[in-house]
Each structure stands twice: as C-alpha cells, then as structure tokens.
Design a protein around this nucleic acid. Structure first.
Lengths: 202, 202
DNA sequence: CAAATATTAGAGTAATCACTCAATAAATCA
DNA sequence: TGATTTATTGAGTGATTACTCTAATATTTG
C-alpha cells in the first residue's frame, strides 16, 4: 500500500538493461540520455528514482551481483558433492564470461577500471560480491577436503584465490576477443588445480 | 634531416605520460585538456601530431606494448634456462600489475573495456601484443620441454594460455583492490602449473 | 639573410554532457 | 470529494566535451 502514484516501469528490468549497457560499453561511454532511451524512462524519472548516473550504476552493479554472482554461490553451497560443484563453477566460465560484445563480466570491468577516488566508489560493490564468492569457494573446497575428495593438506584458500583470479582473466580474455581456445585452456588449468583430471597434468 | 622546426617535446615521454593517465583513469574519463596539461603539449600541437584523442591513445598503447610487453618477451627468449625464464615471468606479476591506482595493466583495461565498434579499435593493439607474448610463452615452454625441464607430454599451448589468463586476472585483482594475498596465490598457482615447486601441490 | 616549414598559444565552436524545474497525472487517505 | 503524496512529462540549464582556427613565433635549409 504505497502512498502516491505508482511507478510505471519495472525496476529490475531497468536495472538489467542498464547493467547490460554498462557491461557492453563501460560506465563513462554510456550517456544518461542513452540509458533513458534503452530503459524507456524519462530522464527526470531516472533521476527521481536513482538520484544520479552513478547511483543507477551502483544499483545496476548490485542487481548484477544478485543475478550473476549469488546463484554461483548458491550452486557452490548446494548439493552434497562439493568437488563437483567447484568443477561446475569452473566449467561455466566460458558460458558466463564468454566472448563477444555482450560477453564479459560487469564486475571485472568495474574492477579493471578501478576509480576508487571517493569512498563509496562503484567498484566497492564488485569487491564485496567477489569477496563473498571467494569465501564460498574456500568453504566448498574445505568441504571437499573434509569429504576426502581432495588431499588432506590442500591449501584451500590458495586454490580458491587462484580459481577466482583465473575467472577474472577469462572475463578479460573473452571480452577482449582473444581466441576461444585460451578460455578452454584456462578452464582446463582450473580443473587441473583441483586434482588434475583435465588431462594435461601427467 | 627534416626541413622545418623540430618538435620541442619528447614524444616518448608524452606517450608514457598519456599511457599512465589512461591506465589510471580509463580512456573516457581522461579529457584532452587534461592530457595537454599533463604532457605540457599545447592542444593544437597534440592534434597536429596525433590527429585525435583516439590516435594518441592508440600510440600510447603501442608505446606501452614496447616498454611493458616486449621486454617480457625478450626476457623469455633470452638466457639458456627457459623454465627459469617462465618462472621469472610469473614471479614478476605482482610487481608489474600490482595493487593501487597506479597499478594494473593498460592492455587488460583496454581489453576489459572492449569497444570493438569500428575495425581498428584500440583494443586491437592490446590483442596483437598479447598474441606475441602468447607465442613467446609457448615457444619458451617448448624449449623447456626440449631441454627436459618439463615432462615430454606437456601441452605447452595450454600451459601458456593458462598463465596468460592468470596474468590478466592478476591485473584485475590488483587494480580492483582485492587483498594482496590473492595475487600471491595466483603466482603460486602459476608456478605450480609449471611443475609444482610452489609448495602447495602434493 | 631569406624562404620554407612546424610549433605554439589562446580564443572560439558546435555538440554533448549530466542534471533540474514547473507543471501534470495518478494513486491513497481523510 | 478534497487534500496529500508520489511519479511522469518535456523543455531547458550551465558546464564540459573533443576539436579547430588564426596569428604569431621559432628553427631549420638554401
């Protein structure tokens, strides 16, 4: 039971559209006029709801985190085969951050850009979501060790960080238009860090 | 023996300054006025010499490739211990693409941004230089196999691509302000892909 | 010294930028 | 109904953008 005139637009749809635009062209290259055009919002409505271009960007990043990051965490935490969950995480890199102008990863772009000039810079959101994924990855690997799927001495934090770094690299490689085989090789390397079933190790 | 008045400015210095600015703040966020201010060039001189903001960017990328990429290739090709050369390449990731606003990698940023709207987009330069490093990495690994430093069956192309992808990831992680331990772990993983002397494997 | 060539400084331009305002429309509450 | 609250609309604002023009200066070669 909200008080005044209800909004005409679908907020999540606006954020998804904005996120896609920002991902494809980068924050600075996307104009507010273009965002209005793509989302259908009138300019004043956009400012009324989001306050700022940066505000819209921040909310779009958050929405992206909820739709792209959180499900990955959930998938890692679900199921009773932790090692397989991590393997699936690695295998989806290509699909998720694959090539083409529509590909890539908004967080990767935000972090690579890295403004960090004022305190609540947009990349803080990317960092926060990444930190959560990092934690989930470590926890899942720890479960895999506990289940005997990985050697007892495995340094789970090191493996998790290596996988995450590799994932960022895949996003760059895919977005940058490097050969797709590079991504395949990165996936294979990620899997080999989990115990060498990729085929190349030994 | 050029005919008229020689240029007053040091071209390489201008390009280095521009590259540093573009790396720190991104292409779109840097204004031409700011570039003039930082390089000391008059605006008309900049346009006379580089034609365009994009032209300056392209030449700055090229200069960056020559100063940051080519030496890495040279280091890989020099010396008679190919495996050690690759290991050193991996170990310098942290120093080269390390944290902070001044850190990161211009190519990584260019590729993550990925305009690719018109044919000779700036990221083509980044792609070309990366392709050369990729080739050099493979060749050096092949030499290491030939020298018996790596197992005979090693898929050198796969290892090279994994290392390169990891390197891109390191640049993102460093620039994005993630914990420095992530980079250490990525370096360790890179080394372990070369035969597990990092300490974590087995 | 003179002619030719290049660079420079500074003002200036059209376009685009992010952003705002005043008025109106649609909902709820009394 | 009438008052209040919120959202939409469309035109408009000053600042900044990349870029250019003109006039003058500096430095070479012949």
């Amino acid at each position: 039971m909200p008080r005044g005139r209800p909004p005409k637009f679908d907020e999540t749809q606006v954020l998804d559209t904005a996120a896609a635009l920002f991902k494809r062209r980068g924050y600075d290259a996307v104009s507010v006029a273009e965002l209005c055009d793509a989302t259908g919002l009138a300019m004043a409505s956009l400012y009324h709801r989001f306050g700022d271009k940066a505000g819209l960007y921040r909310e779009a990043l958050d929405r992206y985190g909820r739709t792209a990051n959180d499900p990955q965490i959930a998938a890692l935490e679900a199921g009773d085969d932790p090692l397989d969950a991590v393997r699936n995480y690695v295998r989806q890199w290509k699909r998720h951050a694959g090539a083409g102008p529509g590909g890539g990863c908004l967080f990767t772009q935000a972090m690579a850009r890295g403004d960090r000039t004022h305190p609540d810079a947009p990349d803080a959101t990317a960092r926060a979501y990444t930190a959560r994924l990092r934690k989930a990855l470590s926890a899942t690997l720890r479960r895999a060790v506990a289940a005997g799927q990985l050697p007892a001495g495995t340094e789970v934090a090191a493996v998790a960080d290596a996988l995450l770094t590799l994932a960022f690299g895949v996003a760059v490689v895919g977005r940058g238009g490097m050969p797709g085989s590079m991504i395949d090789h990165a996936v294979a390397a990620g899997l080999s860090l989990l115990g060498g079933d990729g085929g190349s190790e030994r």
